[in-house]
Nucleic acid binder design. Structure first.
Length: 411
RNA sequence: GCGAGCGUAGCUCAGAUGGUAGAGCGCCAGGUUGUGGUCUUGGAUGUCACGGGUUCGAGUCCCGUCGCUCGCCCCA
């Protein structure tokens, strides 16, 4: 029988991989709670319209990357490609537009039908923070400070730079977009084939091109700064002042853009050079109109998402599993007392293991292999005297301890 | 959708110019029937990704397929 492989773009999280993954998620969860974020959980699949509406008219290309299917009732459902749309839908579904702001932490698997590459999978996992219903730049700064805090707590902030930009308000963006189209049209002979088609579809994206020829042209392209309305410039100023006050370091990068219309004002990415072409480790910004698309009232939002796989790859080391205590019975008469002790240890909150078989030597070898911190050796002579041999497996020191005191000694 | 590289033991990999497959780690057992780590002796393990071709002979060369990896496109 041929061995089956995981489906393309999916992978198992086993051993160290799983510990890294959980460490990222648990760290983010703990820190987000310090910022008043409450965890939500929404379905893994949704009515396809939840996502198609969030994508507006860019649909065509992007829709091809969604895992969509028709269920037996004939409804079109989609495995969520991201968390924000579902969160906005849930805000409306649960009537929470009446109690704003809502500050949300989210984590879970997402799905996109893409060609897998480094740090990029078809089933991947994100951590996500969103603040819904706050129009003030302080919310943006708080969200970014939370992200920075998570990266610091993971010990990877040294490898990561916060890059910040503003997309301005609607008037700013329209003026900027027009200026960009004019500029790139004037240089169209020099643009790459890819960027020529972007000029039609999504001119903002040219600014983000990886093509070297394009980059030379982009260097001379207009930036958003000159096209900001006074209100948009003021919003951006306040954001930067708040970040300074929060002591969050950043560099400005006018090349950070967003493809969809509902993004405005703040756009940011935490980037690293350690992950090849997938350098963005956490990205986010401000948006408007998404909640309306889900049938709610106009409600602004600001948030970020980060790929757990990418963060896991940046961790210097995997956290160790908790070191257990090994209970080692010697001889048949010791087995029941050993089981009783095993259970007492576990109920006292101490991680404890007892091998299913083997003699003393084999069990100690195994205790060593599972990195046990101590062994409790219980032979027939010990049972008869109501004691146990307590052996520290790091030092090798062994002492006789009354059975009744074993749990306290190992706490 | 496009391009490049790679596929040999559980893992990491070695196998010039074609001659019937190896190491380290890990695993199992003994040295040590109530004491692990270190040491030492021995042992098991492979459709050499799959299919075809060239050849007396293919892990090695050729063609195809599949898979993985990295990159392009896309990135909500």
């Amino acid at each position: 029988m041929a061995a089956l492989q995981p489906a393309r773009g999916t992978r198992d999280l086993v051993g160290e991989d799983c510990r890294r993954h959980l460490h990222v998620v648990e760290t983010a969860r703990r820190i987000a709670a310090c910022y008043g974020m409450e965890e939500w959980s929404t379905p893994v699949f949704e009515d396809t319209r939840v996502f198609s509406r969030s994508l507006g008219d860019t649909s065509d290309v992007v829709m091809k990357e969604m895992y969509s299917f028709t269920d037996r009732g004939g409804d079109s459902l989609t495995l969520r490609p991201e968390a924000t749309a579902g969160i906005c839908r849930a805000l409306v579904s649960n009537g929470l537009t009446q109690s704003l702001p809502q500050k949300v932490f989210y984590t879970g698997p997402m799905f996109r039908y893409e060609r897998p590459q480094k740090g990029r999978y078809r089933q991947f996992h994100q951590i996500d923070v969103e603040v819904l219903g706050a129009a003030e730049p302080l919310a943006d700064a708080e969200v970014i400070a939370c992200g920075w805090h998570v990266l610091k707590a993971l010990g990877i902030s040294g490898d990561v730079t916060l890059e910040l930009n503003t997309l301005g308000d609607r008037d700013s963006r329209e003026a900027y977009r027009a200026a960009l189209v004019e500029y790139f049209t004037a240089h169209r002979e020099a643009l790459s084939a890819d960027s020529l088609s972007r000029l039609e579809r999504n001119p903002l994206r040219i600014v983000d091109s990886k093509d070297e020829g394009d980059r030379r042209i982009v260097a001379g392209a207009p930036t958003i700064a000159a096209h900001l309305t006074p209100a948009a410039a003021e919003f951006y100023d306040r954001l930067r002042r708040h970040l300074d006050a929060f002591k969050v370091p950043f560099v400005e990068n006018p090349r950070i853009v967003r493809g969809l219309d509902y993004y405005g004002h703040t756009a940011f990415e935490f980037v690293t050079s350690r992950l090849g072409a997938q350098g963005t480790v956490m990205g986010g910004g401000r948006y408007e109109g998404l909640v309306e698309e889900m049938g709610g009232p106009p409600t602004p939002g600001v948030g970020w998402a980060a790929g757990v796989e990418r963060l896991s790859m940046l961790l210097a080391s995997a956290p160790d599993p908790v070191a257990p205590v090994a209970v080692v019975p010697v001889g048949e008469a010791a087995e029941s007392p050993a089981l009783a002790l095993l259970q007492r240890l576990r109920e006292a909150g101490i991680s404890a293991e007892m091998a299913y078989r083997g003699n003393l030597k084999r069990r100690l070898e195994r205790a060593n292999r599972i990195k046990a911190r101590a062994a409790v050796i219980l032979g027939e002579t010990e049972v008869a005297r109501g004691v146990a041999q307590l052996k520290d497996l790091a030092s090798g020191a062994q002492a006789e301890v009354p059975l009744a005191e074993v749990v306290a000694r190992l706490r």
